[in-house]
Computed example of a mutant assay.
Amino acid sequence: MSQHLGVDVGGAHPYRITIGPGLVDDGALLAATLRGGDAFVVSDDAVAPLYLQRVLDALAAARPGLRIGHWTMPAGEGSKTLATFGQAINAIASAGMRRDATVYALGGGVVGDLAGFAAAAWMRGVDCVQLPTTLLAMVDSSVGGKTAVDLPQGKNLVGAFHPPRAVLADTATLRTLPARELRAGLAEVVKYGAIVDAPFLDWLDARADALLAGDDAALAEAIARSCAHKAAIVERDPYEHGDRALLNFGHTFGHAIETAQGYGGLIHGEAVAVGMVQAARLSERLGLAPAADTARLRGLLQRFGLPVEPPPGLDPDTLLAHMRLDKKAEAGGLRFVVWDGAGRARILAGVPEPEVRAVLAG
């Protein structure tokens, strides 16, 4: 692929998403995001050995005299905690980062969420540039400015809205991504077809083999289309007071599964895949959507090698308890993103718990 794709996110804090290979080595592009003389790169111990030095070298070559710090955290959702957040803040402080510093989040969604939250908190907010290295982060967590850490009671319960200065999605980093992580990212890509763009589901079905094989052009197009959908929704609703909740299709079910498994079972995209099928089944039970659309969604997710049924042994009451604490719940009862069929998602409040329990019980 000879050129990069770009998606502009508007609103009060506009920024550009740049998509294509070679971005982690593009010192001029990396340095163009700086507004001061300090840079701090946060990564994890899976990504850092592959790309950290390349980012540091590119920044140093592009901006001689730039003060650069870095810190590496343990990889995995289990590190997305207040304790690790505190370690990140201490590392930023020890490096002497000033008010005009830029934090670069080099990694998947866990790194992006934690580094973004640290940037939001350090000196009450410094710039953050997202350098996502997983497909899931490229199409979801790096875009929109939602940053957070987990608690034992649930995912992403402590955080801040902090839009990035820029997002640079280097598709070449996906070549080192484990196959399981690539498939998990495709779940979030499928989500955009499910909620707002039914023809995108056909596009994905036609290119499933190319996407699974890591084809640069197919992945870049899928990422750009996904980001364009997310950007449009985020512009309308930056703080999730309305339409932005549509992006949580499947997430209420999925987050409950992740929490119940102690973040040690299904990874996020896998849990979302299961959750989307359950959300479609809930929509069926409520008389909102046809069974054929559930089958279509289920079949596409299976084609991408994703789970479509909850792991065995999970207690419906435990899952319901987690859902009640979910950020999408309200005082009036459980709130879900449901659909009226492919490409037509909506938010529904006051969903009766017996209907949810019936879906959870299979």
Rank of each mutant, 00 (worst) to 15 (best):
T318Q: 15
M123N: 11
A184L: 05
R63M: 07
L320I: 13
G343Y: 05
L186V: 03
P310Q: 07
G145E: 01
T102C: 14
G107H: 07
V41N: 08
L360F: 15
I19V: 15
Q302D: 09
V24W: 00
G214C: 13
L288R: 11
R357E: 11
L211I: 11
G242K: 10
D8P: 01
V196R: 12
P164A: 12
T318E: 10
F40W: 06
D38K: 09
P49I: 03
Y104T: 02
G154W: 06
G107Y: 05
P64M: 06
S142Q: 03
G305A: 14
L201V: 09
A279W: 08
L204I: 09
V190E: 04
L325N: 12
L157K: 00
E221D: 11
G76M: 03
E270T: 07
L168K: 13
Y15G: 02
L34T: 05
A58F: 05
T81K: 05
V234H: 07
L300V: 10
A88V: 15
R344P: 02
A62E: 08
V359N: 04
E353C: 05
Q302C: 11
L66Y: 07
A62Y: 10
I195P: 04
D216I: 07
F200Y: 14
R54E: 06
P14W: 14
A228L: 12
G362Y: 12
V351I: 10
P311R: 11
H229R: 14
D216C: 06
R298Y: 11
D44Y: 08
L282E: 05
M97C: 15
G313A: 05
A345M: 00
A213F: 14
E330T: 12
A222E: 03
G254M: 00
K230R: 12
G269F: 08
P316R: 10
G108T: 09
G254F: 03
Q153N: 02
L325S: 13
F336K: 00
T252H: 00
A179D: 15
A39E: 03
G76R: 00
V196H: 08
G250Y: 01
V196I: 07
G36D: 03
I19D: 00
L157G: 01
G362E: 14
L29D: 04
P164N: 13
E235I: 04
K155V: 10
I89V: 15
P164E: 14
Q87F: 15
A137F: 00
K191T: 13
P64W: 08
L50T: 13
A169L: 11
A160V: 12
G275M: 01
D340H: 13
L288F: 10
F40Q: 07
A231D: 10
L286A: 09
L297I: 08
K146Q: 02
G145N: 01
G265N: 01
V272N: 00
Q278E: 13
G125I: 14
H4S: 11
K146H: 01
S79V: 03
A295M: 11
D44E: 12
W203D: 06
G333W: 09
G20C: 07
A273D: 02
S283K: 04
V42A: 02
V272I: 14
L52W: 04
G108I: 05
H322D: 01
R244P: 06
V189L: 08
G193M: 07
T102V: 12
S226G: 12
